[in-house]
């Protein structure tokens, strides 16, 4: 019987986030959340900050989640998670709590709740779906929006070439909390992402995962390209994939062949003004972004020496029958 409906209930993987959600076509955040909950398994309780993920998964009275899920406010996902975790602890239960939020809910408004959660050493995995702006309310800049990107509140014009400021280095701030594990991941490298989720799930204590999640609407690209763009984000060095243990860099995904940042930029409407002819600032900003990528590559030692099965070219190499179970 190969009817999709009957196959759905017999999938050889856990489905934490089901079909029927209202995310846009090719949504990176929906994919990231699907991958995270799949790897985490059924014994979890999720908390979710206000934002696209919350809205598109739970249009009342329906839910796309297949695990317990709570939403309260934009700013308090980590605070709620802390409370749920404390209650579970009091009951002697070992169910893992996963707090989730967008970059707005994490880098900006939910930041102190997150910091408190980490500092109090709650046994919670916090996952930030980083689509680099406040997408749910119509693409406003956040402190995670990259330099020079266009949003509705950082429009390019006479005085500015998109966002004036730099993307906040959140992982370094997380590192300063000396948590046992924090990492960045990308939807373009699902095997790596899954491994990081499983790693974090095994740790007793606060852990943090930052997942680069392209947004076709906010970034101005066709939904078809979400993975390609995420992959270029990593291969250019603009979004380094790193793992931190107690604040120290424990490992990085080496870049086999660094790709020039223009390959990443030119596919996205939010960087369109960086390609306008006759504006000398366009070139300047492209060079600036290239310098930021080069800085990341140097800072984290991303340029590997020689081919590595876990580098940017090796980590997504396909094999017949699917990826080897690790």
């Amino acid at each position: 019987m190969t009817e999709p409906a009957s196959l759905r209930s017999r999938q050889p993987r856990f489905r934490g986030l089901e079909a029927g959600h209202r995310a846009c076509q090719g949504c990176g955040e929906a994919l990231a959340a699907r991958l995270v909950t799949e790897s985490a398994g059924p014994d979890v309780i999720l908390t979710n900050a206000t934002g696209c993920l919350e809205v598109f998964t739970t249009p009342w009275p329906q839910s796309a989640w297949r695990v317990p899920w709570l939403h309260s406010l934009f700013e308090n996902s980590a605070a709620i998670a802390s409370g749920v975790e404390a209650a579970l602890k009091a009951q002697g239960r070992r169910t893992k709590v996963i707090a989730m939020g967008g970059d707005g809910g994490t880098f900006d408004i939910g930041f102190q709740a997150l910091s408190g959660m980490l500092e109090r050493m709650h046994n919670v995995l916090y996952v930030c779906y980083d689509n680099e702006a406040y997408m749910n309310t119509g693409i406003q800049r956040s402190s995670s929006t990259p330099h020079a990107a266009m949003t509705t509140t950082s429009p390019p014009g006479k005085n500015r070439m998109g966002k004036r400021h730099m993307k906040k280095d959140l992982l370094s701030i997380i590192a300063a909390h000396h948590v046992p594990y924090a990492a960045s991941a990308s939807v373009a490298y699902p095997q790596d992402l899954r491994r990081k989720v499983r790693r974090a799930m095994e740790i007793e204590g606060p852990t943090f995962l930052l997942v680069h999640s392209p947004c076709p609407l906010g970034w101005g690209h066709d939904g078809t390209l979400s993975i390609e763009i995420a992959r270029l984000g990593v291969q250019t060095g603009l979004f380094p994939l790193i793992e931190l243990e107690r604040g120290e860099v424990a490992s990085v995904m080496p870049i086999r062949n660094p790709v020039p940042v223009v390959e990443y930029l030119k596919r996205q409407g939010r960087f369109r003004h960086l390609f306008s002819d006759g504006d000398h600032r366009a070139r300047e900003e492209r060079e600036h972004l290239q310098a930021l990528a080069d800085y990341n590559i140097e800072r984290y030692g991303l340029k590997g020496d020689g081919d590595d099965p876990l580098d940017t070219d090796g980590a997504d190499t396909v094999r017949r029958g699917g990826p080897a179970r690790t």
Binding site: T2, V318, P323
Partner: peptide, 23 residues
């Protein structure tokens, strides 16, 4: 080549896998 990419990457869980061959 049964690499699982489509199954892994569909944001909508709209690719389902069979243990037997599909038609």
């Amino acid at each position: 080549l049964a690499c699982d990419n489509c199954w892994t990457l569909c944001p909508d869980n709209a690719v389902v896998k069979t243990t037997e061959l599909a038609s």
